[in-house]
Structures are given as C-alpha cells and as structure tokens.
C-alpha cells in the first residue's frame, strides 16, 4: 500500500500537470511559440524519433566519456591527496578554483581549440564538471575510516594497498556514490550546454538551439524532453550502481523491499 502510493503519487501528479498544461494551451488559447502543448511536443518527438535518438546518443556518449574519465581522475587524485599532504596542499587550490569557474564558459575556447568537428572539447568539459564533485566527496570519504579501524589494520600489519582496499574504499563508498550521483547530472548538463557554443551540430543541445533559432518551438521542446530523459537515465543508472555496490543490500532478512527489519 505504502509502496503503491509512493509510485502512484508522483505519476498522478505528473499526469495532472500534463492535462492542466494541455488544457491551458488548447482551451486557454496560448500561442504555440510561447508554450506548445504536450500533444504537439509528443507529435514532434514521434516524427523526429530517429534524429532524437541519434542526437541523444551523441550527447549521451560525450557525457558518459566525461563522467567516466572525470570520476577516475577524481578518485585517483583524492586517493593521492589522502595519502600525501603535499598532493593535498597542491590539489586543494586547483579544485577550489575549478569549483568556482563555470566550466561551460570554457566551451567556446575548447571548441575552437580542438576544431569544429571534434567532440573532444565537450567531453573535456563534462569530465571537468564531473571531476570536482567526485574529488571533493571522495576525499571526504577517504577520511571516514574510524581510528579504531585504522588501529586494527595497523595491528594486523596490513599493507597500504590492503588497507585501502579493505578499509578506506568501503568506508568511503557512500561518499563516492554521492559524488558520482551529483556528477552524473552535471556531466549531462555540461555536455548539452557545451553544444550551444559551436562545434559539431547533431547533439541534443545543438538541435535544441537550431530548432529554437528557426522558431520550431515544439521540436525544440521535443529535444528538451529528450535531454530530460537522458539526464534521468544517467541518474537512475548511478543509483542502480550504488544499490549493486552495497554489500548490505543483500542481507538475508529483506522485509518489504527497501527497509529491512531485523528480529532477534
């Protein structure tokens, strides 16, 4: 019952909003270029489906490449910073600077640096946007291991590698995934927005801006919906990865699905 309402409530709300929107547009007579109706948008999505999927593929790939690389670099650098004060001292100002720079502001520069037909600039931007939250959260995570656990590993004469694998990383897991979850949305947004500033067309962002420029508003909105779905896919994928990586999600008493209650 609770689970059913949890799923049903937002769906019903969404449906109500869509119906209301449709009514406002078709009965209230709002102009199409101001706000196209949901049905018009869906029609455009159907008509341009192959282009929509292809462009989502391009933007999605850019975002994914950036996300994976940014995550790897972020985690490795955070690990290095947690080992060495020098690395920490060197990395801290760089990351602080990166955190305040609007990364997409680099888009025009990178796009012209790497040529008009290269996706590299966008991937670099998605990667940079990913790197910051992953690094910050990972570094915090790597400092989560409790002193008693550190003492224990010392007592067992565990090597640095053993300690990292069996203590530091698992203790940091929730923080790592928080960083990656934030980063996954940022990666999609950055990859998308970077397309507004030159470079090859064909991605979702590029199509949104060209459609809007040629006053094809319902089509622009159709691509916006595509962008929203792409962002959702990334979010759900990272949330799923987090669930899979949780050793305690496979615990034996599994009442009700999400919250496991224990009876002694």
């Amino acid at each position: 019952m609770t689970r059913a309402t949890r799923v049903a409530a937002p769906l019903l709300l969404g449906l109500a909003v869509l119906v209301g929107w449709q009514l406002v547009v078709s009965v209230g007579g709002v102009d199409d270029y101001l706000l196209p109706s949901p049905l018009a948008i869906v029609a455009e999505m159907g008509e341009f489906l192959p282009t929509l999927l292809g462009s989502a593929g391009i933007t999605g790939t850019n975002a994914l490449v950036g996300l994976v690389l940014g995550t790897l670099v972020g985690i490795l650098l955070a690990l290095a910073a947690s080992f060495s004060r020098t690395v920490d001292a060197l990395a801290a100002p760089v990351v602080a600077a990166l955190a305040v720079v609007p990364i997409v502001a680099l888009a025009p520069v990178l796009n012209s640096m790497y040529g008009a037909d290269s996706e590299f600039g966008r991937r670099a931007i998605a990667g940079l946007a990913t790197f910051v939250p992953v690094f910050v959260n990972a570094l915090r995570g790597f400092r989560q291991a409790r002193p008693v656990h550190r003492d224990l590993m010392h007592v067992y004469a565990a090597s640095r590698w053993q300690t990292t694998l069996r203590l530091t990383l698992p203790a940091a897991r929730p923080f790592l995934f928080t960083g990656i979850r934030i980063a996954s949305s940022l990666a999609v947004i950055s990859a998308l927005v970077a397309e507004y500033f030159g470079g090859p067309r064909g991605g979702l962002g590029g199509l949104i801006s060209t459609s809007a420029a040629s006053s094809a508003y319902p089509r622009a909105w159709a691509y916006v919906v595509g962008a929203i779905v792409l962002g959702l896919v990334f979010y759900v994928a990272t949330a799923l990865a987090e669930r899979l990586a949780d050793p305690m999600s496979s615990r034996p008493p599994r009442a009700g699905g999400t919250t496991s209650t224990t009876t002694q």
Partner: peptide, 22 residues
C-alpha cells in the same frame, strides 16, 4: 579494543576472517 570495532560492511564471519584474509 574497548569498542568492538567491527567493519560494518562485512558480515560477522567476514569480520572474524579479516586477519586471516590479510
């Protein structure tokens, strides 16, 4: 130790096996 200091992400058996594993 004064605190049990078990690793929360390991099962009970996994905790006891930790030194042996290392």
């Amino acid at each position: 130790f004064q605190q049990a200091g078990l690793l929360p992400w390991r099962t009970i058996a996994g905790n006891i096996e930790l030194p042996l594993e290392l």
